[in-house]
Design a protein around this nucleic acid. Structure first.
Length: 484
RNA sequence: GGCGAAGUGGCCGAGUGGUCAGGCAGAGGUCUGCAAAACCUUCUACAGCGGUUCGAAUCCGCUCUUCGCCUCCA
């Protein structure tokens, strides 16, 4: 079965074939770095991380570009049009560049925790001002853009397909419900800014043929996508809230400039909600990832995200996170058990699970179904291991290989470190292994002598130290307890 | 007002014209010195009203409800 992707442009699942055989170009809208990342960022970047991982798993060479927006966009009404990064710089009594750097690093720290692979190229907007100016010049030259008082606007009337992504093609109808325009220097109310002249006190500004100013907020993605991936790319991803106007504007300015289709597959992921309401920085209901990580395993968050489809909204609650943590632990337990198992004589067929997993992933990256397959596999593995015959060494190795490829490489939820029960695979981990071996031996001895007071003390004290002991049929095992 | 998405069992969350999602939680059992884990069994679904159909939670219509988006300027 081949890969089908839901294309927001056309709103149907389409068979995916890259433009250039074997190579996939993908651009995903990155964060604006003026605050710590929240769960909404996590959903978006985990989702696209799995897209990239699956494409690579399927044999493609993937060129993944994800920008960092370090030129502040304007805030909403209440903030009197101040640039978000500049505002944060004022609050933190520093300058915009430091804010951008600080939160860029913070963003990657959080993404690393979530096992989100770094993009191949992570360009920042401020570092690509010449490219953005060049794109504007191209548009001005071909009359798709015009200059007024040092500002440059894109003329939507010059581009027939404007609004085709979001379905907002009737510009007159769009105006009917929007706030009244008092007066505008724009030719059409829907025209959008490509370059803005800096007002007094604006810190992030650059020289341009039109004014000292800064680029419009849709421009960077077009300029950088075209620079690193070419004028037509395979996949462009982003949050649903960016369909309009951001992505529609990107299409207009890019296609007007190049005369070629900008993006072949548009992918939009849905929002994280809290009590049914969108999570957002400006809404003050966002759940900061660094806060969550204090009490929850980051991979449980990743797992929680992947348990719902990327195009479905995901409602956050502590209970839901807790349920996911327990569920993930179950999968880890199965893999751990499988790895420690001695070879038996029973055969076990992993291929039906493999096929179902592949089909789920090929069906528009259906990770909830893929995870359900892993749970059913887990159940089957446990049943096989409980049976007297056990599992042959070949079956065991094949099953482990599949779990590691699907759970670890593709979904990124079963990290090798957390599977083996050895804590960390570093020097400290090795000493811990040795120390634990001694304790386990002493405890086994105590149990043999029916000195349960001692054996229970060892177990309880270790649990306090974050290590959990389980007495299975095959003997006692230990593992680092993940916080729930 | 316009554009778009959605309403599934105690909770989370897939899917589909006719036979199982899955997880978490709950109940009973097996195992165990106890605990945990594991395994087995089990309970409560498809917003409402019409229609199409041999058959719809799944298709169509209407109603209700919820959510996202509507830039630049302010």
């Amino acid at each position: 079965m081949s890969l089908f992707i839901y294309n927001s442009l056309g709103r149907t699942k389409e068979k995916f074939e890259p433009l250039h055989p074997g190579i996939v170009s993908i651009y995903v809208c990155g964060p604006t770095v003026y605050g710590h990342a929240h769960l909404g960022h996590a959903k978006s970047y985990v989702s696209f991380d799995v897209v990239v991982r699956w494409l690579r798993h399927s044999g493609y060479i993937v060129k993944y570009v994800q920008n960092i927006t370090d030129v502040g966009h304007l805030t909403d009404d209440a903030d009197e049009g101040e640039d978000k990064i500049m505002k944060q710089a004022r609050l933190e009594k520093t300058d915009p560049m430091e804010i951008a750097q600080f939160y860029t690093r913070s963003f990657y720290e959080d993404m690393d925790q979530l096992e989100v692979l770094r993009p191949n190229i992570a360009p920042n907007a401020a570092g690509h001002i010449p490219e953005q100016i060049a794109l504007i010049e191209r548009l001005v030259k071909t009359d798709h853009a015009y200059v007024v008082n040092g500002n440059v606007y894109f003329s939507v009337e010059s581009f027939s397909g404007y609004g085709k992504l979001s379905g907002r093609t009737d510009q007159e109808a769009q105006q009917s419900g929007s706030r009244v325009e008092i007066r505008s220097e724009k030719r059409h109310p829907s025209d959008f800014a490509l370059w803005k002249k800096a007002t007094e006190g604006h810190l992030m500004k650059w020289n341009s043929p039109w004014s000292i100013g800064y680029p419009g907020w849709h421009l960077e993605c077009s300029a950088m996508s075209m620079k690193y991936l070419g004028e037509t790319i395979d996949i462009h991803g982003g949050g649903m809230e960016n369909k309009f106007p951001h992505h529609d504007c990107e299409i207009a300015q890019s296609e007007a400039a190049s005369g070629k289709p900008y993006v072949r597959f548009w992918m939009h992921n849905n929002m994280v909600t809290v009590n049914g309401i969108k999570m957002g920085k400006s809404l003050k209901n966002s759940v900061n990832l660094k806060e969550i990580f204090k009490e929850t395993d980051p991979l449980a968050i990743r797992f929680f995200i992947l348990q719902s489809h990327y195009r479905s909204p995901l409602d956050y609650s502590e209970a839901a996170i807790k349920a996911s943590t327990s569920g993930l632990e179950k999968l880890r337990e199965t893999l751990r058990r499988l790895k420690e198992q001695k070879a038996g004589s029973g055969t076990f067929a992993v291929s039906p699970f493999e096929l179902r997993f592949t089909n789920a992933m090929n069906d528009d990256f259906n990770t909830p179904v893929a995870i359900a397959v892993l749970f059913e596999l887990s159940k089957a593995i446990n049943a096989a291991l409980d049976a007297k015959e056990g599992m042959t060494e070949t079956s065991r190795q094949e099953t482990i290989a599949f779990l590691e490829s699907s759970g670890s490489n593709v979904l990124g939820i079963l990290k090798p470190d957390s599977q083996s029960g050895v804590g960390e695979n570093r020097e400290s981990g090795k000493s811990l292994d040795k120390v634990m071996a001694i304790l386990m031996e002493l405890r086994a001895e105590a149990r043999k002598n029916r000195d349960f007071a001692l054996s229970d003390t060892i177990r309880d004290r270790l649990l306090e130290a974050g290590i959990e002991i389980k007495d299975t049929r095959e003997g006692a095992t230990w593992s680092r307890k993940t916080s729930a």
